[in-house]
Design a protein around this nucleic acid. Sequence first.
DNA 1: TGGTAAAGGGAACGTCGCTCCGTTTGACTA
DNA 2: TAGTCAAACGGAGCGACGTTCCCTTTACCA
Lengths: 200, 200
Amino acid sequence: MSLDAGQAGQGTPRKRADSVRNEQVLLAAAAAVFVGSGVDAPVREIAGRAGVGVGTIYRHFPTRADLIIAVYRHQVEACAEAGPALLANTESPHSALGQWVDLFVEFLVTKHGLAAALQNDRDGFDALHTYFVDRLVPVCAHLLQAAVAAGEIDADIGAYELLRGVGNLCAGEGKDPQYNADRLVKLLIRGLARPAPRRG
Amino acid sequence: MSLDAGQAGQGTPRKRADSVRNEQVLLAAAAAVFVGSGVDAPVREIAGRAGVGVGTIYRHFPTRADLIIAVYRHQVEACAEAGPALLANTESPHSALGQWVDLFVEFLVTKHGLAAALQNDRDGFDALHTYFVDRLVPVCAHLLQAAVAAGEIDADIGAYELLRGVGNLCAGEGKDPQYNADRLVKLLIRGLARPAPRRG
DNA sequence: TGGTAAAGGGAACGTCGCTCCGTTTGACTA
DNA sequence: TAGTCAAACGGAGCGACGTTCCCTTTACCA
């Protein structure tokens, strides 16, 4: 096994600054391209958007699966961190929940691509899936809780249940032009809202 | 819908002889290549095996889905016709059943490829699927019946059930090197056999 | 048997994933 | 601060692919 990584700060911080910067840029570019063109998007498109050469991509992510996995973890993390941030910056918790679910839906594109890319590696996929569940369910639960506390929604749905439902709504998205998952998800979230007290 | 095909023999038999011959050759070649290299096999490989140019393939089957559908129908038909033939030419009906299931398994490669190629067209796929069931279940039932009549197997399994079971055993075949569907199918068929009467 | 439209064949084009290697650059040392 | 050097970069280039285009061949009918 190689302990070469230079984060423990033994004597020499190995990673060059431009390298770590490019890795971040690549993850962001790949995420955007996946959402726009699917996970089968050409490598050159990702490189172009990131403003780097294709060689750089292959240096950081030797296989397409490596790239997808990295984007996936990156997005799980970003999605998880966005939850509390949205809650803090948005007046209504229910609205924050809606915005957060939008992020979640975008991210599902990568997740579904991941499943296709890891057909061979059931174990690897399962590991990433439990990571995904463990990381995001609490965030969603937190948002739900806040909305309940604010009296905006009822407390009759669980976080896992909601995420699972949204995920299922997005299954097969993009295949059938008749089917628009986004719209259905929006409706679902709107349906969570407690009816406003009648005025009169 | 186009009724252009020239089989009703109005005035002029439109189709040229070499055209129909090449179409048959192409279907056979494509079927063989699909089994050997999967449904994503290069067009040139199919053309090469058929001994024709790539242009000829595109003339007959403008899209890959067209080709796969045609191979699929062709194989369903061939598989259906092979049932009675095997029964007539093989001493033991149970053995005939085994050989027939081998054909069926080969054919499943195309069927699974079909599902992938027709993601957009759920209706088209469903139509082909019911065609497949309607055509092959009776053939399988006939083989089972013969084996039962010969006292080689028990009558406790239905044709649909058996085909479904074989189909499920073959799901995901080729992805995981640990998993060999062929072997399991063989075991399943062998398991149908009635134990030979004890001697002694 | 000759004319003709259908069918065939395959070179050629554009795109893709991926590699390879000359060039650039960040980081460490003297 | 200047010099050194390995790590990182970029993109031309390779081989393989799907698809098209057009010239050649051929089966059919009068």
